[in-house]
Design a protein around this nucleic acid. Structure first.
Lengths: 362, 362
DNA sequence: ACACATTTCGTGTGCGTACACGAAAATAAA
DNA sequence: TTTATTTTCGTGTACGCACACGAAATGTGT
């Protein structure tokens, strides 16, 4: 392993000079700079990230801005746990991680939390860019301060985010279409249920529906798709009423596609006599959803490894800061197909983390 | 962050003494040992793995023993690539990784390579325990030398391996059964094709078949399962002849289940007029198999993330050595359901690694 | 009491890098 | 040329831990 000292000796300069060249700190004459660079190149020198981390202790601060979660809306817990796990791991590299949360249904809370966040002088930021207009403002500030930022889970175009980590929504819907087709055969009717005012993931949701429909179109399969919009997902009684009367009217419906993580809520709302005859497909491996897989209420879940998304986002950013690794522009999570049987194998990482065991010291 | 120095100060001893207590090196009186331990406990002290790694430079050597691969049998390339990627990452922790390969059809080559490996004085070993008898001998040596070992991909019971990383074969087959059922409906016939003399993964293969059959039994679904054994997979012409004449005889067969990674070979051997009418399901995301998904020869692949298996095995062992993390006894890989559509999203990590980009220095 | 062995512990150095400080060299101003 | 100024660079210390070396403390036998 070649070290800075080796380079210095070969270039007949001091270690300090090599360091200045490496980090472009200036104060080196053009001549010696070139000499050192040539030797660096020749040996394909890479700084030892471990030593660097030790020396840099606490020089980096990654702040995250993600939606909060509660018992009703638990999806965002997974990325958060992933972030926590990664936080533990990058701490020793001198990277500090702190989390800020906002209400995913309230744009002003998004901005507000960002304004608190930015005061802590972050080295880099990871955000779930839930609202378009507000994200533009946020990004403006970040770019002025020269702070790198990464988009998590929601993919907005037209920004200079160093990367995006999340699922290809269109293809997620497309796969859902395929599974629906497999389960039902041709010539059936399916119902798409979504919230009317889902500002949050509007983009993702509509892309999923698009993909779902396209599957049938592109493969030339007849499938009558009905759509039911629901006003928010908070009033269980009204959901029940609405969906069951709709199913009453449209007895031909054999499958239900819920292009969001609220599929368990929908499944629970459906009367059991309808439920038994329906193939329901939805998104995300929340606890509730997994439960409804297990009880055969839901046939398939398309999952996107939210835990890993959070986990990876921190590592990606940490590697960017510590090791100067340039990430890919878009990092697509797997489109996991979950059934009753394979679901438990899928959430391994997350449950492992929650029951994390480690000796307290050597 | 609490350091050894802090502990030493609080215990009114030197750093050296704390170090001796931490590593149980002896030479510390019972009294001071207890005093130090109490303070260690109180602060939940953990050594900084980064500093430890820097100080321990090149003290650890992980050796792997895995089957080799070639163009005909490419499955084992993925774990190897995963191992290579991890090797890069753990190098800076003072962990050295070296790989040894054996012929997975030849027990003596397995033993032979191990005997070469063991001479290099490994700190820990990762093996794919392909042969039972020989593994017993190998493990014997390892345990006498007090060398920790981990099983990769193949799960043998009755050993003191610190962990197993791989798939639950039974459940893999079970999920395959479910997919077959979904594709074909009830009351059909399916064909299970496997090699007659597959010493290699005999255990895994038979567990998969078991799971496959159990799906239909447990869910009370009629399905006539026929079985076709093939002598090795090397003579393409003989495979073609055998399988097509079998399909000729049994026109009722609607699905083919290949409980191994050789599914593409089988699919290629089948005449196209049969092929179009068959649902074929097999295992593993090899290049050939993915290809046959894309061309609609194969309907589903059950994949087990071999790249990640290799990758994780190194990190697990490295964490065990460097950070003294105790791994879980069994680590099950996901049972990934691959289709034409989602396959490309599944192999991300692996392809990312092959086209790995990183600045040469800071 | 002494000499000696043994146990117990403190000090110092190295791992590879970051960065502050100040010295030497080069340049500009007098 | 001398002095002041700027540019260029070398030295030293810190990061937290592992481990070698040897000193101090304790114990043993006479």
């Amino acid at each position: 392993m070649i070290t800075i000292k080796d380079i210095a000796k070969e270039a007949q300069v001091s270690e300090g000079t090599v360091d200045r060249v490496l980090h472009d700190r200036g104060g080196v004459s053009q001549k010696t700079k070139e000499k050192v660079e040539k030797i660096l190149e020749k040996h394909n020198f890479k700084v030892n990230p471990v030593a660097r981390a030790l020396a840099m202790k606490n020089k980096f601060k990654i702040l995250t801005l993600t939606p909060n979660f509660d018992t009703n809306n638990v999806f965002w817990k997974s990325p958060y746990l992933g972030i926590l796990k990664a936080k533990d791991e990058v701490e020793n590299y001198g990277v500090d991680v702190e989390n800020y949360f906002f209400n995913q249904f309230d744009p002003s809370s998004y901005l507000e939390q960002f304004n608190i966040l930015i005061k802590s002088d972050p080295t880099a930021v990871i955000i779930v860019p839930t609202f378009m207009t507000e994200t533009k403002q946020i990004v403006n500030q970040l770019e002025q301060l020269n702070i790198p930022y990464l988009f998590l889970n929601i993919d907005l175009d037209g920004f200079n985010n160093i990367s995006f980590i999340g699922q290809d929504s269109y293809m997620g819907g497309y796969v859902a279409g395929k599974l629906m087709h497999l389960s039902l055969g041709k010539n059936t009717s399916t119902l798409v249920v979504h919230a009317r005012l889902n500002l949050t993931n509007y983009h993702a949701i509509s892309r999923r529906i698009e993909g779902f429909n396209d599957y049938f179109i592109k493969n030339n399969i007849k499938n009558k798709v009905l759509t039911l919009s629901i006003d928010g997902f908070n009033n269980d009684a009204s959901i029940e009423k609405k969906i069951n009367s709709f199913l009453e009217e449209h007895q031909e419906i054999k499958g239900v596609f819920v292009p969001s993580s609220r599929v368990a809520t929908i499944a629970n709302a459906i009367n059991s006599n309808y439920l038994a005859k329906l193939q329901i497909i939805g998104f995300d491996n929340t606890k509730q959803n997994i439960e409804s897989l297990a009880t055969d209420q839901v046939a398939f879940l398309i999952s996107q490894k939210p835990f890993e998304q959070g986990y990876e986002s921190i590592h990606l950013m940490s590697d960017f800061l510590v090791k100067n690794k340039i990430p890919k522009n878009k990092i697509y999570s797997p489109i996991d197909i979950l059934t009753k049987e394979n679901a438990i194998f899928n959430e391994r990482n997350e449950t492992d983390f929650e029951s994390f065991e480690q000796l307290s010291y050597e």
